[in-house]
Design a protein around this nucleic acid. Structure first.
Lengths: 347, 347
DNA sequence: GCGTTCAAGCAAAACGATTTGCAAAAGGTA
DNA sequence: TACCTTTTGCAAATCGTTTTGCTTGAACGC
């Protein structure tokens, strides 16, 4: 015969299945001595509750999904992967520590391939406006939590990526060098771009400078950014600093600068958002923002769980994003002795 | 009332639940016209089969796990993450295209935290000898497929990482420059280290050179490697090339070389294994091996599925690993015009 | 007209747990 | 003793499928 069931265990212990169930779940009191006997016996005969049966009965799936709204395979590639995967790793750890597992969901191609998915809730990373992923889960009655506000969906709970603060951090830094600052964001309408553009517009308004902001299709990746940046820098040679939140775009800008013979940071100061491998290992290393993605991921898991009414651990407050200054943006007059000059030591 | 069940659908269609079930599964013939009516009606009333019930009945979980035997959070950190996550992304895509989902499993801390996991099978990435992860799944009767042979577990199916070929590729390249080649591997007993060490020993035997091989605890990460490499290079100043399969160790070696004033590649040639961000973006970019991890991941998923008797897609043959020569190992006499000199263009 | 076969569909038994309502025993009070 | 309350445990219903026999009715050969 197969694996022992709760019935086998009950028979062995000389009690009913109800009692066994209660002994494990604690939903009702059972005589401590009885419980101990049951537990010992369970261990002995190797009983383990059947999750599939539990799930049918309770209606819980015991797992959540982590979804990127951006294709894995698309050009933004390894870098974007870094962002998502840093979240994935932390989310997996948190989820498992809460007793649920985490499914990594690739972008939905043919819509029905996601049918297989069976989850209690989903964490969607930086959705764009009208993101089909959101509809997919909404349709199925799956709880959603976003990382980064979902544009146009104020009904959805989210963990704040603090994009406004991040934007101001970067812009404060770049504008401080008395530079003529340009902006390169993504074409997709993600909240972080929207807030970045708003902060930039506010800055421009304040200083009376002339705005130089362009958008690039994320799918073009590094190369599209390099081409666009080259055109931009030719057209507007007075630009002396660029805020480029997408790190793949930022390295593209580095290529463009090299092609144009403009040194970074002496002739062009540069800063990006996600402080990943790419920013850290670029030449020169890129000024970036530590978004505390591990905390963000953990908070997202806990927020989702709270919405599921499960483990009501109160999501703790998030630390504000912090600027990590690296050589790519040190003001040209000053020496390279800014904090964390090499950007590699803490990798 | 809640979501429509198969019973509701059967009633609506004026047939029995059996017929509905057969209409969807195709296990028995149903009148084409009846089937069409059922399908249309299903669409109309919004019926979707309950996965939990299906799973209880069929005994399939509909998902597989991807497990790293190495802690996420441990010092090897972002780099190791790259390796695992590159596999995770590709595996997720393949798995979903086969109609099953993929759970990302963090390392097991307290053993029971993994209890929540409910999968049909597990892919374990580069297990070490006596890896507890393997026992965990074996105990539970979960099918296992490894990426990279599991040392001491010849019973387990695996997707070959072709570590022997990889080792020879790297060693051929380094020895070709008439260099005095040293080796730095990891202390853990993973198959790739074992095969690398064997290939190195064979080389030494052949050439009559004196061996200089050390092992470093993976948990020490980049810094431990830097310290060990510095000691090694001081003790054996004649070493003119280092084979360092772990990329985090390789960048550590770069630091050590810098500290000792040895230029790479002029004074010290260097090559690593995993061709990730780290290798590509290092200064100078590191010679590495393209392991075709995306194919490996896909093959692992298909192999696992084959063992589950599910989608018996024959795993296609794997492409051999290919050397990607970068400036870190170009022989000192030659110019830097080896193929792919900058290592960034194809990122 | 009689057996045989086949197609199409149905009723009911699993799958293995949780949960509800009820019963027996135990203790407390009047 | 009678009555009420609490504790402890049980039997049976339930979750929504899949799957196994079993019934029809029709087609077929003879």
């Amino acid at each position: 015969m197969g694996k022992p069931t709760i019935t086998d265990l009950a028979r062995a212990a000389g009690v009913s299945v109800t009692t066994v169930s209660h002994a494990f779940s604690g939903r009702r009191h059972v005589e401590p001595e009885t419980r101990r006997r049951i537990e010992a016996l369970a261990e002995e005969i190797g009983y383990r509750p059947n999750h599939r049966a539990q799930r049918l009965r309770t209606g819980r799936a015991g797992s959540i999904a982590l979804v990127s709204s951006m294709p894995f395979a698309v050009a933004a590639g390894p870098s974007r992967l870094g962002f998502l995967m840093e979240i994935a790793a932390a989310a997996a750890v948190t989820a498992f520590s809460r007793g649920i597992s985490l499914c990594l969901v690739p972008p939905l191609g043919p819509r029905d391939s996601l049918e297989a998915l069976e989850v209690d809730g989903a964490i969607v990373v930086e959705p764009e406006r009208d993101d089909p992923v959101l509809d997919f889960f909404s349709d199925r009655g799956v709880n959603i939590v976003c990382i980064g506000r979902a544009p146009g969906r104020d009904d959805l709970p989210f963990v704040d990526l603090q994009s406004g603060a991040t934007a101001r951090l970067l812009l404060d830094h770049l504008f401080s060098g008395n530079s003529n600052v340009g902006l390169i964001t993504g074409q997709q309408r993600r909240n972080s771009y929207i807030e970045m553009e708003a902060a930039y517009a506010a800055r421009i308004e304040e200083t009376g400078a002339s705005p130089t902001a362009i958008r690039i299709d994320e799918n073009g990746g590094e190369q599209a950014a390099a081409e666009a940046a080259e055109r931009l820098l030719r057209a507007e040679p007075s630009i002396s600093a660029l805020c480029v939140p997408v790190d793949a775009f930022a390295t593209g800008v580095l290529d463009a600068a090299r092609a144009l013979g403009r040194r970074v940071p002496e002739d062009l100061r540069l800063a990006t958002r996600y402080d990943g491998m790419r920013a850290k290992l670029a030449t020169p290393p890129l000024t970036a923002v530590d978004l505390h993605l591990d905390h963000v991921a953990a908070a997202a898991v806990d927020l989702l769980l709270a919405h599921l009414g499960d483990g009501a651990t109160t999501p703790q407050a998030l630390a504000p994003p912090t600027l990590v200054v690296r050589p790519s943006s040190t003001a040209s007059k000053r020496s390279n002795s800014a904090r964390s000059p090499d950007g590699r030591s803490r990798a």
